[in-house]
Amino acid sequence: MLGGMERPRIPSLNWLRVFEAAARTESFARAAAELNMSAPAVSQQVKALEGHLGMPLFIRHAHAVRLTEAGRAYLPSVQMSLVSLESSTQGLFGRAREERLYVQAVLIFAQGILAPLYGDFTARHPDIALNLTTGNATEDFAHAFADLKIVFGAPSAHGPAHDRLIGEVLYPVARPDIAERIGTPADLLAHPLLEVATHRAGWPHVFSHLKMLGAGARFVMVDSTVMAAALAGSGAGIALARAPASNPVVAAQGLVPCLPGVSVPGLEHYHLVYPEAATLRRPARVFRDWLLESCATIARG
């Protein structure tokens, strides 16, 4: 007893490993495959942890699970603890067969840059298990645990150390049947213009480059380039491509440039953010070097 209260027992390490995998994959079945367990065994371990803590960590659905508020609050601490234990074990007793690395990236960068390069990284570094999660809003990055974070815009809001990766180039894109009706910049104003609210550089920035006021423009506000591209693909309006990160989603939606030859440099860049270089674990240092090299190659075209 301590101060009249019972000291809580630390949960089983197996329970925490299973919880982390299920939370990350949002599926007991996928967690079971990753951990070489059965799905019922994963469910049993999670129930044991929830019983130990005295509250539910997941909301169960038919084919997926979702973290409760308590689960979301607990996950970063669990991930940090597992990483710390892994690092200590490797430092004292030699490198493990596989080191786990947590990277969180803004969605469009993850889809457009990291996904196409994922195979290259894993082929070069099969000893590093890369766990990639995404976010969009600033708050998505504020409380989540990651060794490295890839953000767009001001990096200092996310960590004290950072590397500039790549910028963006903007140009209007639409379905081919809409794009063929755009002969001059003024023709853009006849269509709804899909605007990403979180970006400093948007349609007003493009209008300024084209030396037009944009009076009468009809904006449809969305929260991401992925959503803007999806709406443009459905014929809902004209979006702004943000190359090179948006290249795959633009191609997947069948979008084409509305004004070939028109491109406008953006105002912000993607940054790799971390606490400080001296504290990075080995897999994070390896990933950082690889990503800087890869982005330099992309920037050179």
Rank of each mutant, 00 (worst) to 15 (best):
N247C: 01
Y270F: 09
G235T: 06
V18N: 03
L267R: 08
R72C: 02
T297V: 07
Y102S: 08
V226G: 00
V18S: 06
P244Y: 01
S12C: 04
A105K: 02
E26V: 05
P176Q: 01
F152M: 11
F19D: 02
A154N: 15
P192Q: 02
S246G: 03
E99A: 13
P248E: 14
S156Q: 15
R175Q: 10
R9K: 12
A33N: 09
P265Q: 06
P8N: 14
D187R: 13
S38F: 02
E6A: 09
D147M: 05
D177G: 07
R281F: 13
R300D: 15
G216E: 11
L213Y: 13
M212A: 05
I178F: 00
V250R: 01
A296M: 09
G183P: 11
V273N: 01
L170V: 01
F28Y: 15
A154Y: 12
A29D: 00
G119L: 09
F145G: 06
A215P: 00
M1P: 12
W203K: 04
G71A: 13
E268R: 06
T225W: 03
E139H: 13
F287D: 00
L75Q: 09
A232D: 05
M227C: 05
L189A: 07
V256N: 03
P8R: 14
H162R: 14
S43L: 09
R282W: 14
T25L: 05
A31E: 11
F219T: 01
H269I: 07
S88M: 15
A277S: 08
R24H: 15
A239E: 01
A129I: 02
I10N: 07
A142R: 15
R181N: 08
G135P: 02
S294T: 10
R124Q: 14
D147G: 05
F219Q: 04
L259I: 08
F152E: 05
L148R: 06
H61T: 06
S87V: 08
Q253C: 10
E268W: 02
R285A: 05
G214V: 06
R218E: 07
L193D: 11
A252R: 15
G261L: 13
F93D: 11
G135L: 04
T138A: 14
L53Q: 04
L170N: 00
P248M: 11
H63T: 03
L189E: 07
D163Y: 04
Q253T: 00
P176R: 02
W203V: 02
H271W: 09
L130W: 15
I10L: 06
A73D: 03
A96Y: 05
S88E: 12
N14Q: 13
L107Q: 13
P126Q: 11
T89A: 11
P8W: 14
L259Y: 02
P192V: 01
S263M: 13
R300C: 05
S87H: 12
R60K: 13
D120E: 12
L85S: 09
A229R: 03
G254M: 10
N247I: 03
A245I: 08
I150R: 08
Y274D: 12
T138V: 11
A115K: 15
S88I: 10
C258H: 10
H143M: 08
T134G: 03
L35F: 14
K149G: 01
I128K: 04
R17A: 07
N131G: 08
A186S: 11
P185N: 01
A251N: 10
Y74E: 04
F121I: 12
W203N: 01
V206A: 04
P176G: 01
V256A: 01
A22S: 07
H269L: 07
A251R: 14
A144R: 15
W203P: 00
G237P: 05
P155M: 05
